[in-house]
Amino acid sequence: MSDKPIKRKMEETEEGTTLFNVPFPTELTPEALQSLKNMAPIIVKDPYSITYIHSYGQDSPWFAGVANKVLLGSRQPETGYTYATPRGHDMYTGKENDWVVLPQEGRVHTFTVCHFGSETFLSETPFVLVLVEFEGADTLFLGRLLGVDPNEATLDWIGMKVKAKFRRLSKFKPTDVYFVPAEE
């Protein structure tokens, strides 16, 4: 006996069936033409894909940083306001920020466990998202948390000390850095 629940609904999939013709009146009488208004809609599969040439622009050094195991942030030199997620210009003074090195340990400010997700990330579920706070930074950083059981989510995770880990083989994505629980 399996302990899986009994399914009551056939799963929808998108393979469909190749069809080369559909029913249509053979004689186009006025009644037949009128009856076309009562037809069910024809729904076709129509794939579409895009490859973007995406530039990280002024944020680019951050990606170079994580590829070299360095976590960068932005700082407004006049006020010291520090962004844990880099930002070219300060939202208060309007002036250009400088790059600073962030600590590699921080704390979980908030989190969630995604049991579903966008199509791109669906195969990675369940995964844990965290907003991390760092000593000396005024804003937060969004990352993945590994090393916790996603089925044991608890509010106690908030405040947990975490440390940054880096992919050895960079993908030049923000997930080149991720977080794991650190010792207190």
Binding site: P86, T110, T112, C114, F116, G117, E124, L129, L131, T175
Partner: peptide, 19 residues
């Protein structure tokens, strides 16, 4: 650049707020 590629999912974003 920084949010969507980490696991972009709106329910996840709002869940972090309510947590």
């Amino acid at each position: 650049n920084f949010d969507y590629p980490v696991g972009g999912f709106y329910t996840g974003y709002y869940a972090m707020m309510v947590t």
